[in-house]
Design a protein around this nucleic acid. Structure first.
Length: 834
RNA sequence: GCCGAAGUGGCGGAAUUGGUAGACGCGCUAGACUCAAAAUCUAGUCUAGGCAACUAGGUGCCGGUUCGAGUCCGGCCUUCGGUACCA
């Protein structure tokens, strides 16, 4: 009686038990960790594959949907590669320095280091619960001396080569973050990339990395990397190369000269006035008394305008005459010098020769202030606009007349060079990377200032310059480190007399510009990273992260990588061979953010459905690179798929004990239904592989669902051999998208080892892909009128007969004249009638 | 303004090189199981007309190329990214 009820109980449990996701996921996570399944042997480089996601910022808000959307699918790609036999290295770490931790400290009094370590602890657990195949041996964080010491070392190497330097320059100041920002970190509307506050301009002495030295190479390198076209073009625009000339203009009555940069030196005969930036150093000197008051008022107005004011105003040109005149070396005429804010001090030379005839802005300005306009390129007869910027014959240009733009450019540049008043010149929009930050929670800049010796870099053997724990970080615009006397006061490494440390810290983008090299051995203490491993494992094969880093992190990392190559530490030109951006998951049309209150918390879904279902649902939602608006509507569909997969496998537990795994089955010995399943499995393998390899996870999931439908329908009618053959391959594919379920199923069918340690590789049987019958469409006048099933590669005559036998074809052609018939082999048969 | 991507059922989305539009899933409808419900299973589901076979229309809009267009070309509209006086 007891036995019977137990027996019944077991049956009912087996039949109706839902997939116990919590237990299964916990079980396999433990198994993977204890058996070190995902610790990569970095010495084995034969089939090495470095798969990297942008590391995580350990803020208090923990893992959100965006992280899952970034990490889950990428991990699935990596897992599939692992199953294919690649030696995959997939690390994870923490981008742990940065403003939010410090702002949190100001608000709550919790020290950034304490809150960061606390967050990392939580996030690490969350990451582990995701069940990604991260190699936890490689885990790193940037906020510990073992890491940031090498930021300082990197700084010193750049300094040695003259690529880290200090200068006084107008810089972007964020009054809310209380620090300066790099140009890349200012949004196009002049607000702070991090907090959205309008950025102000300040003159400060700051440290810069000379990224401009690599401008040309950064531009060229874009051609060699497999990155999204969009991202590459953003970098091209950011670097902003333009080819032209510099021309020197003498100023009437002064020894000083004005140098301008122009991409159109050929239009110099049309330069009827000049404009210099209001901030230009010569303004003071050349302005005549008559105009001084107006000029000063204008300069003050401009100074007080924020970027927002400057761009939001209706773009009407403004400016003032300085009273001074320059000498146009081509026309030999005196032309007035104006100041206007449409000329930027930060681009080119801060001065232009204005050629209204060929430049829309100059035309607008000239029209407004009644300045002369001379065309120097003949517009076409039907041209109706104002300034003409297209190609044409030079006119009003003396010895250039009759030449087209490029000929005229060449000739005028020769003329300028012969007369020593100019030369050809390439200009870049990109500016040096400002790395000083007036904040606490970052890498101290390893420089001391000595009264006798001046600026002295800290010697390498004295690194790291440790970030002190005891610091008063109230936001008053000064660097918090400045208030820590025991940090500031030191001795000069050169002469031993009293000296002060630099109190700024580095931009955290320095940390992230080489972290992918450190992952290979984060405990390495002899150098910044293990050069031997770096040369073997970089460039990174697959890099996945947000598109918002296009002109920040992704540009800085390319720069630093090239520098590391130049000091012989890596042997490749680019850090990231292939780059993919995940799309953004929005909620109700807006980006998820705490302030909008539309953040979707993944935890509830993990609890209800498990991490496999949640990850697979994110993948199934749509194209990975597009992202989309969040909705949990369809998640039950993925859950059903998991349940159905599980119960299918459950029906065949330990099937491996009955029959053996084989690489192939002989098609001609299979029954019709076996053959059809066998073919379906192989076709699915081919499709699935293609989809996953290209990050098209939504269709990869669809392939598996289709296969599951087929298997549930027909698997009872095939031999054990075919059953095992099909189920093994089904599980193999599932394992990359739903790793825990995959392992569980793998073990249910009778395997003892992890599927990720399986030596068995599931190759496609090409025989199974051969189709013998095709269904072709029959059309009349291009409209579908039926389909016919015929053997592959049938002759036209066979198809023709079958087509004309179709009832509908007869109906639609009767009483009409056949004009022609078109046969596209194995695809379509079209009859054209009149 | 300029550059880029996108626009397909009630919804998320599929559709190598132009060749059966709507795979897969959600939702919905009907049926089976159940005292009943949920879950599950089976069938159906682009729209309009028809009991049906079928007919007509249909991939943002207008036009074109073609035997044939979601896919190619020209002109627009909308949405989302990026960028903005860069001389």
């Amino acid at each position: 009686m007891i036995i019977l009820s137990l027996f019944l109980n077991k049956i009912s449990v087996d039949q109706f038990m839902k997939y116990p996701h919590s237990e299964v996921e916990a079980k396999w996570q433990k198994f993977w960790e204890e058996n070190k399944i995902f610790n990569t042997d970095l010495t084995d480089i034969e089939k090495k594959l470095y798969c990297l996601v942008m590391f995580i910022y350990p803020s208090g808000s923990k893992l959100h949907c965006g992280h899952w959307y970034n990490y889950g699918p990428t991990d699935s790609w990596a897992r599939f590669k692992k199953l294919q036999g690649f030696n995959v290295f997939e690390p994870m770490g923490y981008d742990a320095f940065g403003l939010p931790a410090e702002n949190y400290a100001i608000k709550t009094g919790v020290h950034p280091q304490d809150s960061t370590f606390e967050n990392i602890k939580d996030i690490r657990n969350q990451l582990k619960a995701m069940g990604c195949m991260y190699d936890w041996n490689a885990e790193l964080m940037t906020c510990v001396p073992e890491y940031y010491k090498w930021n300082q070392w990197l700084f010193l190497q750049l300094y040695k080569k003259g690529l880290a330097y200090r200068k006084n320059a107008p810089v972007n100041w964020c009054p809310s973050c209380q620090t300066v920002l790099a140009n890349e970190q200012v949004e196009n509307d002049g607000t702070c990339e991090r907090c959205g506050t309008p950025v102000e301009q300040k003159n400060l002495t700051q440290w810069f990395f000379k990224i401009t030295e690599y401008a040309e190479e950064l531009l060229d390198g874009i051609e060699k990397i497999d990155w999204p076209e969009k991202t590459k073009s953003m970098q091209r625009n950011w670097i902003g190369k333009s080819i032209g000339a510099e021309i020197i203009f003498t100023i009437d009555g002064f020894d000083e000269t004005l140098t301008v940069f122009t991409t159109r030196p050929d239009t110099i005969f049309g330069a009827t006035y000049m404009v210099i930036s209001p901030e230009h150093p010569l303004v003071e000197k050349i302005t005549t008394d008559e105009y001084r008051t107006a000029v000063n008022i204008y300069r003050n107005e401009v100074k007080n305008k924020t970027e927002i004011d400057r761009t939001s105003t209706a773009k009407e040109k403004t400016g003032e005459f300085t009273g001074a005149y320059a000498f146009n070396p081509a026309t030999k005429k005196l032309i007035p010098i104006w100041i206007a804010d449409y000329v930027l001090m930060t681009y080119g030379t801060g001065a232009i020769m204005a050629v209204p005839g060929q430049d829309e802005r100059d035309w607008e300005f000239a029209e407004k202030f009644g300045l002369p306009i001379v065309r120097t390129v003949q517009p076409p007869d039907d041209f109706e606009g104002k300034a003409y910027v297209g190609d044409g014959e030079a006119i009003n240009s003396d010895f250039l007349n009759g030449l087209n733009i490029s000929e005229a450019k060449e000739k005028i540049i020769n003329w300028l060079e012969e007369n020593n008043i100019g030369e050809s010149k390439i200009n870049y929009r990109i500016r040096d990377w400002l790395i000083s930050r007036q904040r606490y929670w970052g890498t101290p800049i390893p420089v001391v200032y000595c009264e006798k010796c001046g600026e002295v870099p800290v010697p390498e053997d004295q690194l790291p310059v440790e970030l002190p724990y005891d610091v008063d970080f109230k936001p008053d615009g000064g660097s918090p480190l400045a208030r820590n006397e025991s940090f500031v006061n030191t001795v000069c490494p050169k002469c031993g007399s009293d000296a002060q440390r630099d109190v700024d810290t580095m931009d955290t983008f320095v940390d992230s510009s080489w972290y992918y090299l450190r992952y290979l051995n984060p405990k390495f203490d002899k150098a910044i990273f293990d050069k031997d491993l770096a040369e073997k494992w970089t460039p990174v094969d697959m890099y996945v992260g947000g598109a918002e880093h296009a002109t920040m992190h992704l540009l800085y990392a390319r720069f630093i990588h090239k520098f590391l190559r130049d000091i012989n530490l890596v042997n490749s030109d680019e850090p990231f061979n292939k780059l993919i951006h995940q799309g953004t998951i929005t909620n109700k049309g807006a980006k998820m953010s705490k302030s909008r209150g539309n953040v979707v918390n993944p935890d509830k879904f993990i609890e209800d459905y498990g991490s496999d279902v949640f990850r697979m649902y994110l993948m199934f939602m749509g194209p990975y690179e597009l992202g989309g608006d969040w909705s949990d509507k369809g998640i039950v569909g993925v859950d059903r798929f998991v349940q159905r997969s599980y119960s299918l496998i459950k029906n065949f537990d330990n099937i491996k004990n009955i029959t053996e795994s084989v690489e192939r089955l002989p098609l001609d010995k299979l029954t019709d239904i076996e053959a059809s399943i066998y073919k379906k499995v192989n076709i699915s393998l081919v499709k699935f592989t293609r989809e996953v390899e290209n990050f098209r996870f939504n269709t990869a999931v669809a392939v598996l669902m289709e296969l599951l439908n087929e298997l549930t329908k027909n698997i009872d009618d095939v031999s054990d051999e075919v059953k095992l053959y099909s189920l093994e391959r089904f599980v193999y594919m599932i394992a990359s998208l739903a790793p825990h379920l995959g392992e569980e199923c793998w073990s249910i069918i009778g395997n003892v080892n992890s599927i990720y340690k399986s030596e068995f590789k599931f190759e496609v049987d090409p025989e199974a892909l051969v189709v013998d019958n095709v269904t072709i469409g029959v059309q009349v006048n291009g409209k579908m009128r039926g389909t016919i099933e015929i053997p592959l590669d049938s002759d036209e005559s066979v198809v023709k007969e079958a087509a004309w036998n179709e009832e509908k074809v007869k109906n639609h052609t009767s009483g009409k004249t056949v004009v022609k018939e078109i046969y596209v082999k194995n695809k379509i048969y079209n009859i054209v009638v009149k």
